[in-house]
Design a binder for these strands. Structure first.
Lengths: 183, 183
DNA sequence: GACACACTAGTCAGAGTTGACTAGTGTTGC
DNA sequence: GCAACACTAGTCAACTCTGACTAGTGTGTC
């Protein structure tokens, strides 16, 4: 859920004003359905939810020449706070979908802050890897079902791969790649 | 959902007879919550669902000396068919959680069949990796948000890591590790 | 000019999931 | 001997997600 919320807030914030379908189309043009489980109904649901919570407001209707009228949304102060909270949490998160959504919007933070968050992300990911390693040692029988030991290895591969990616990204930031807020 | 269903059917089948909490405890002893998103209420939900669908039956109550009476479940013919269908689908699935559940029960298939399925799994995983590579080439601007190119790289890492793991497992099977049905 | 087809812009019921809660049963310390 | 705590064995309401569907608007084409 927090992934869709971040994506919706991020798109509305970046565009200034947007209706549901515009958010939907923007996210689909980013192939969000490839790197998260976000699907159209979830997007509309998140928009309504954020509106009810006062994170988005509807300054008016856009009367479109073609198609039905569409409700325009704009981000509020409270929405901005939620956006930055979700963004920082996402860049720290070991969940690959949430993390991906954080990367998508990292440029609304200062470069230095993103590097700090990626460092935290790396520490968490490595800690999980170490925890899984330790957990593995507690199963005495690697040959018997459910092969929990091997399954833990399968997951360790995922976390190690993510850690490598995060390290690479941190180096790119250090090397001055990308443009950031307050650069 | 299919992950929980496979896990529940597999545990009931392996034990012959089981009540909800026994399934729950078995799965938790396997650390299923570490390598899937399966949580207790989902387990109870799946048990009831499978019962309604005739995949499980309740031959009787176990009157326990301590605690409330518990409903015992047993797998039906139809349940067996579902079990094997889910198991084969899981071993072929690129979804790491589903795949993990398949590995947990792979020994109820013949060794040869598991090797075939792992070969299919590898082909699918590599195909996804190739598709992501190709998709990446269609974004012209790697420096601009949402960094979709880099996010695709993040995911490719996951799939490549899974492919390596599957290759390793296939080699273990070829080397005669583990005991299988019909060995 | 009218028919098929694709695109826009969503909605909806039903299914699945979750955090929080309940309620009974040992059991340990004082 | 009893209060506090942990463990057993789940349930529940509220929330979220999903596949399938709707309905209006261009647009090409014969």
């Amino acid at each position: 859920m927090s992934t869709v919320r971040l994506l919706v807030l991020g798109v509305v914030r970046a565009r200034g004003e947007a209706h549901g379908y515009a958010v939907h189309r923007q996210l689909m043009s980013w192939r969000v359905d490839t790197w998260t489980a976000v699907k159209p109904p979830s997007i509309y649901h998140a928009v309504k939810q954020l509106d009810r919570e006062g994170k988005l407001v509807t300054p008016g209707l856009a009367t479109s020449p073609k198609g039905p009228n569409r409700v325009l949304y704009r981000i509020t102060e409270e929405g901005q706070r939620e956006y930055f909270a979700l963004l920082e949490a996402a860049l720290r998160s070991p969940d690959i979908e949430e993390f991906g959504a954080g990367i998508a919007f990292m440029q609304s933070l200062p470069r230095r802050r993103v590097r700090e968050l990626l460092t935290e992300q790396l520490a968490t990911t490595r800690q999980i890897d170490a925890d899984l390693e330790e957990m593995k040692a507690q199963w005495p029988d690697p040959g018997a079902p459910p092969h929990a030991q091997h399954l833990l290895e399968l997951w360790r591969g995922v976390f190690r791969s993510n850690a490598e990616w995060a390290m690479d990204m941190r180096e790119r930031l250090a090397a001055g790649e990308f443009c950031f807020a307050e650069d």
